[in-house]
Structure formats: structure tokens, C-alpha cells
Design a protein around this nucleic acid. Structure first.
Lengths: 191, 191
DNA sequence: ACCTGAACACCGTTCAAGT
DNA sequence: ACCTGAACACCGTTCAAGT
């Protein structure tokens, strides 16, 4: 009757669950180890570093993006952007985990791939996907950090311009405006 | 002959300098204290928390944005976006410091103010500034974390799609495309 | 007004050794 | 194949006390 033993996937399962319950700042290797009933050093048999663990977590978050979008243009690009954002919003601090993983060139790159596909085969697709992803990550990061601030007793709440979570409403408008610019005569990325 | 004594501004001076030399992950209260020739606890006479210190650092970074832009539309909005990005790029990890400060509703909000002004007095100005700021922060965060990865011996460099720093090139194109969408018949934020 | 000294409750990571 | 035990070099923050 050996005590708790785990594989990579099992560790990531628990990491995702812990992330959602306590947030990224409290997702430490030591706390994760405690959650698994194991010594902290045991985690380094499964992963070379915390960063590598977080990359695996990021991939799981992005795995929630559906890979086929039934919609046709021009709504397909918006639907793709929304599906990426929705995946990030599914777990607490999901945007931050995915952003740092993406920046380091780790992880699957699934978010970008879905956006490239949704934008079609045009020459602007790659660059357009990069721009969209930068906006999606920036937007969602702000939304999720705002959530984190509200729960920890928001100090100076006057800086937050308008009532209710109206930042969320800027998402569709932002994506739509960018897409309109892509198609406008004065617009396009490679002019 | 009393040993080193400081005021708030002097501490922020050193914090900015240290940030630029070692990056945000290594900007600890303890290291900053050592740099100042002082005990860590001394910093808590000047600031209630590390977060408050970082808010003061963020304000100094944003103070580099010129408050009057001589340019007229339609180039004024682009110039404003560039001036915000340039301020963030002036210090290592500037985008991350400003993003977390902005998300918590701390700091001056100067970046957003400049963008609102540059977009004119229209009803879309506030919402447009929010969208622009989300893109600018997302873009610059990615650029700066990429820089940080390169210096620390980039592990999996295949994930980084194209050679040279071509992400930087997406900035102007992204801003221009969004602005074109704002003015296009199919575009505008409040449709 | 500004700082020290000591403590509390934490971090990520390494490495020999165990089963 | 997977984990323990112990150590190393760190964190942010508090609080009584000093000058």
C-alpha cells in the first residue's frame, strides 16, 4: 500500500484545480506538493522547472478552444477571438499563464493557430492573428487582474472609470473595429 | 554623520534604476533595501506595501509621455499610442509594472488620459482609448517578456515564428488598422 | 522623520539517497 | 519510475524599539 504516486498528467490536473481555487500568486510548487501529499522536490522529477509546469497548464487551458468553427466569414474571426478569450476566462489567471508561456515560446501555440485559420489563407492572416492575440491577452489580463483586485478588498476604486464590469463590453467592439479596419480601403496590415 | 537617509522620491529613483538593471522578478524589497544601504523594514516607513511602491514606479514611467502632441488627426492617435508604448519600453519590464498598477486602479491613469485626448471629444474616445490601451499593454508585455527570455538563454526558440524582432513591426500596423476600423462605415465602436 | 533588529511564514531548486 | 530529507539562498511584512 504505497502512498500517493503521480504522473505528469495527474500533477497538471491538480495544478489546474489549485490555480482556479487560489490564483496564480498562491500557486507555489510547495503548495502544489502539499495538495498532492508529496514533498516539493518530488515535482522536479516530473518537471524541470515551475515554468515548464506552467506551460503544461497553459496547454490544458488552450485545449478548451474548439478546433472547428462552423461559422463563416465575417463572423468566423470574431467567433475565434471569443473562443480564445473564453478559454482564458475558464480558469483563474488563465491569461497570465498563457501570456508568459506564449512569450517564452513554450506551449503549443494553439491560440495563435486558431486565429490564423479563422482569418483565412490571406497574407495578412499571420500578422492579423498576432495583433488579435496581443489584444485578446491584454484585454483578458486586465479583466482577470481586476477580478483579483475586487476580491482582495479594492482599495482605490475611484480609478476604475465606469460602474459594473464595462471593460468586458469593449471586447467585441474592439475585435469588430479591428476587423472592419482590415477590410476597409484605408486599412489592411501590409499597406 | 548619520548614515543613509531617504525620502519617497529617492527610494523610487533607486527602484527605477534597479528595475532597469535587474528586471521585475529580481526587484525585491530586500534587494532594493540593500541597494539603499538600509534594512528591508525601513521601506515600510515610505510605502505601505510593495504594490504601492510599484504604483509610484509606474507613475514615473508614464511621466515620460509628452502631454502635448503637435500632430493633427489622423496621425495624432497613432502618435499618442506610440508615445505610450515608448514610455513603457524605456524601462525594463515597464509594461508589466504599468499593467498591474492600471488593473488595480492605482496610479495616475496618465496613459489612458493621453489616449482619450488624442482620440478627440467624440463619444467613442473613452471606449477607443480602453481598447487601444489593452492592445498597447498586451503588445509591449509580449515584446518585453520576449527580451527577457532571449537574455536568459532562449530554450525552445522554434516557437518564435519569424526571424528578427518582427513582433515590434506589428505595432503600427495594428494601431492603424484599428483606427481605420473606427472611421470605416462598417466600423465604429458604438454600432 | 526615518531607521534597526528580530522574527514569522513563506518561496524555487538541488541532490544524495531511498523503494 | 517516483519519492524523501535536508539543505541553500532567497521572499514580503510586522512590530517594538532606537535616534
Amino acid at each position: 500500500m504505497s502512498p500517493t504516486r503521480h504522473d505528469r498528467d495527474g500533477v497538471v490536473d491538480t495544478a489546474l484545480d489549485l490555480l482556479d481555487r487560489v490564483g496564480l500568486p498562491d500557486l507555489s510548487m510547495r503548495r502544489l506538493a502539499t495538495e498532492l501529499g508529496v514533498q516539493p522536490s518530488a515535482l522536479y522529477w516530473h518537471f524541470d522547472s515551475k515554468q515548464e509546469l506552467l506551460a503544461a497548464v497553459a496547454d490544458r487551458i488552450l485545449a478548451r478552444i474548439p478546433d472547428t468553427l462552423a461559422t463563416v466569414e465575417p463572423e468566423r474571426a470574431l467567433a475565434a477571438a471569443q473562443s480564445v478569450r473564453d478559454a482564458l476566462l475558464t480558469y483563474r489567471d488563465g491569461a497570465e499563464v498563457v501570456m508568459s508561456t506564449h512569450a517564452l515560446g513554450l506551449g503549443s501555440g494553439r491560440a495563435r493557430d486558431v486565429l490564423v485559420t479563422a482569418l483565412g489563407a490571406g497574407p495578412d492572416a499571420e500578422e492579423g492573428a498576432d495583433v488579435l492575440l496581443q489584444f485578446i491577452l491584454g484585454h483578458t489580463l486586465l479583466v482577470q487582474q481586476r477580478l483579483h483586485a475586487q476580491s482582495h478588498g479594492a482599495a482605490a476604486d475611484q480609478g476604475t472609470q465606469d460602474p459594473s464590469g464595462s471593460i468586458e463590453n469593449t471586447f467585441d467592439a474592439g475585435i469588430r473595429t479591428f476587423l472592419a479596419g482590415l477590410r476597409s480601403p484605408a486599412g489592411g496590415l501590409t499597406q
